[in-house]
Computed example of a mutant assay.
Amino acid sequence: MTTKSIAFKPANESVLDAFTGGPLAGEFVRCTKCQCCYGAESVAALNEHNQGLCMGCNGPLPGIEKATTQY
Rank of each mutant, 00 (worst) to 15 (best):
N50D: 12
A40V: 14
I6Y: 11
D17R: 07
L46D: 02
N50T: 06
G63P: 01
Q70L: 08
Y38Q: 02
C37M: 07
F8V: 12
N58W: 06
P60C: 03
L24C: 10
Y71I: 07
T20W: 08
Q51V: 01
K33W: 02
P23Q: 01
K9F: 10
Q35W: 01
C54H: 03
E65G: 10
G21K: 13
C36R: 09
A18I: 03
A7L: 02
G63K: 03
T2Y: 07
P10V: 14
I6L: 13
V15Q: 09
C34P: 01
I64L: 13
G21H: 15
K33H: 02
T2S: 12
T32K: 04
F28S: 10
L24R: 10
G52L: 12
G63S: 09
I64R: 08
V29A: 02
M55R: 02
G21N: 13
T69E: 15
E27N: 04
M55A: 07
L46P: 04
K9E: 14
A25W: 05
G21M: 15
C31I: 07
Y71H: 04
H49G: 09
Q35E: 07
S14W: 04
G56Q: 07
E65K: 03
M55Q: 12
T20D: 14
K9G: 05
G39C: 11
M1I: 10
S14G: 06
A44I: 09
G56N: 08
M55F: 08
E65N: 03
T3K: 10
F19L: 12
T20L: 09
